[in-house]
């Protein structure tokens, strides 16, 4: 008996050419990460060709298979053309897609992560500081996946952190208060974080995104905050993402 076609919406993250004219692509959707084959998609006359491109939000119909699911219809919902016109934004978008790919769960509902990714991609081209949007994306993604960074309290003794410089450990995903830090002597595993950087992270954690603009943030401050988050990401997924070095350009 023939398996009925299924319908799915998601963002294409990667594409590879296969055989003479086929393309294999990866889609991140509410159902997780899936691979598909689009037969004949490399041919100029193919109805699928233009739609199967990384960074396209698409709706597709596919025939489930034991190996690769074969797509029969693809339609673009959003192509993020504004991003595709700027080199730096393409690199940033690719970083966000790789990050989302690496933190997507197989069996859980991923709809909120997908919406977070789509919303960030929709807004990033209008942003005055795109790296700030990426920082918010990284922070929210970690939080959603259960790896949220503990910002307000000490990760060791749970005491509220005072307004001063503190040490951040990516291993534990949070800050140490001065007493715990001195007693544990964790200098080699921790990074000193200034009050200013903590303020950025606290504002993001409170979702007061409008207040971030009034803080007159410099690229350097945002970059330092991103380094903290990126170290946490590296510790969580166990590898450095390939696109990290391109996302700061």
């Amino acid at each position: 008996m023939k398996t009925p076609n299924k319908h799915l919406k998601g963002i294409i993250t990667r594409c590879t050419n296969y055989k003479e004219s086929d393309r294999i692509f990866t889609l991140i959707s509410d159902d997780g990460i899936m691979k598909f084959i689009a037969r004949g998609a490399k041919k100029p006359s193919s109805k699928l060709s233009g739609h199967i491109e990384p960074l396209n939000y698409v709706a597709l119909y596919y025939r489930p298979s034991k190996s690769l699911n074969s797509v029969s219809q693809v339609e673009s919902i959003h192509s993020f053309l504004e991003i595709k016109k700027e080199y730096n934004l393409i690199l940033k978008a690719q970083y966000m897609m790789e990050l989302a790919e690496s933190l997507f769960s197989e069996n859980d509902d991923n709809s909120s992560i997908l919406s977070l990714l789509i919303n960030t991609l929709r807004n990033i081209h209008n942003s005055k500081i795109p790296t700030l949007d990426i920082l918010i994306f990284e922070f929210e993604l970690l939080k959603h996946q259960g790896f949220g960074i503990s910002i307000f309290d000490c990760t060791n003794c749970d005491k509220e952190l005072e307004r001063s410089d503190h040490y951040f450990s990516s291993n534990v995903g949070g800050f140490y208060c001065t007493t715990c830090f001195e007693s544990k002597r964790l200098l080699d595993q921790s990074v000193k974080v200034t009050v200013g950087q903590q303020l950025i992270l606290r504002t993001i954690a409170r979702k007061n995104y409008k207040d971030l603009i009034s803080l007159n943030l410099s690229e350097k401050e945002i970059s330092n905050c991103r380094k903290l988050i990126q170290n946490s990401i590296r510790d969580i997924i166990g590898v450095q993402l390939k696109t990290v070095k391109f996302s700061d350009l």
Partner: peptide
């Protein structure tokens, strides 16, 4: 648009 394609099936990028 490439020769032999249908306008109906063109994606936003190609049309733009």
């Amino acid at each position: 648009l490439a020769s032999g394609t249908d306008l109906e099936y063109s994606d936003f990028n190609t049309l733009s």
